[in-house]
Simulated assay, not measured.
Amino acid sequence: MALTAAMTSLLVSLVWFCAATVRAQRDRFVFNGFQFANLSLNGVAIKRHNGAVQLTKETFSSIGHAFYPRPLSFDSHTSFSTTFVFAIVPPVPGGGGNGLAFTIAPSPLLLGGQAGQWLGLLNSTTDGSSSNHVFAVEFDTVEGMKGDIDSNHVGIDINSLVSIASKTASYYSENNRKQDLLLDSGVRIQAWVEYSAHEKNIEVTIAPFGVARPHRYLISHTLDLSSILLPSMYVGFSSATLKAEAEHYVLGWSFSLNMEAQPLDLSRLPSVPRPPARPKRALAIKIGASISGTFLLLAIAATAAAYLIRRAKLSETPEEWERDLPHRFAYKDLYLATKGFKDHELLGSGGFGKVYKGVLPGSRVEVAVKRVSDSSKQGVREFIA
């Protein structure tokens, strides 16, 4: 009987231990690359062969999401810690869009999220609604939203893409000097996000890949997430492009509830996949076609202008005194006959103007053409005499 009781007690302990272990595994995880990771991917997001998660393609107006597949439990006492490595790869460093965001949301699908400045999170209708229950830390490379401080900033978002706190992307070196950091440089960047439910404060820190975590944060903001985070939430990433192309990658990710996230093993993280030569070539073709098209339009405009000017020169309106003459030659015929009133066809000049030698087109009859001068002081009678 005593043995049975002991076995029962041991079994209960094992069940409790296993349940606690499963709960602990769900409350924290670490992905040093995503080769074998089970993630919820939607939009254009894919897992690359080297273990990187690609959120967007180098195309216009694309959206991608990558989330941990199981919901996590939150309450008013829940803190969280996360660190991840990302890269934004545009065709030209500093020319990409629109950015990515670490996100905590009620659903991994983010239905209704739009491209561009909305980062695939919200849209113009839902932005600002308290029913969103969306928390995000954005890494924004386009000055698109109202209130954006520049086109290279980190911001904290609550139910809206209008950040409640933001700073130009930078980090503090070991000697406490502030160093700028270009988000869409195409190189790996590490970020840390820490929320304390007890202190009701959130801190965001970034640094170049391989640089130790700075002792000084980039953003520290007083914030109570108890009314934002529902009892069941999903954690992950959202990204989007619009008019500016870029490939957005997440290369490693560690997350934990109520304790510090486990450090990433940087030596195991995948490198940034480089775009194939074709997109760059296509970009060159686009630029070349744009330049060629511009020159073609200018050439067409110049040709049209020259034609209109020539046509204006050759156009005429008969005057009243010409109606009494037995024959009238068109100005165009006289212009052609004198080869455009060239000086080498000049026969002489007088007070009325100049006389040119000409050959009428068609009949080939030689004629003398009198052309009145604007400065002539003689009248019509003297001219036709």
Rank of each mutant, 00 (worst) to 15 (best):
L297S: 09
G358T: 01
P276I: 07
V193K: 01
V154L: 15
L121G: 03
Y335D: 07
T222S: 12
T205S: 15
A37G: 05
L11E: 03
G120D: 01
L223Q: 14
A212K: 09
F84P: 04
G379V: 08
A368P: 02
E366T: 05
A191N: 14
K200I: 08
E366V: 03
P263F: 09
P279E: 12
G147D: 04
L296N: 11
F34G: 05
A2E: 14
V204G: 07
T103N: 02
A277S: 07
G155Q: 04
E203M: 10
N176Y: 14
K146N: 14
T103R: 00
L41D: 10
P71C: 00
T141E: 02
L360G: 05
D184K: 00
E199L: 08
S73L: 11
A105W: 03
S173R: 04
S76K: 03
V355I: 12
R48N: 09
V211Q: 08
A20L: 09
V85T: 03
T4P: 00
Y68L: 06
R26Q: 01
V92F: 12
Q190N: 13
E345W: 09
V12I: 13
V137F: 04
L225Q: 10
T82D: 02
G353V: 00
K47W: 00
H198K: 15
T8E: 12
L308P: 02
S267H: 15
W253K: 03
S256R: 02
S79D: 01
T222G: 09
L122K: 00
P273K: 06
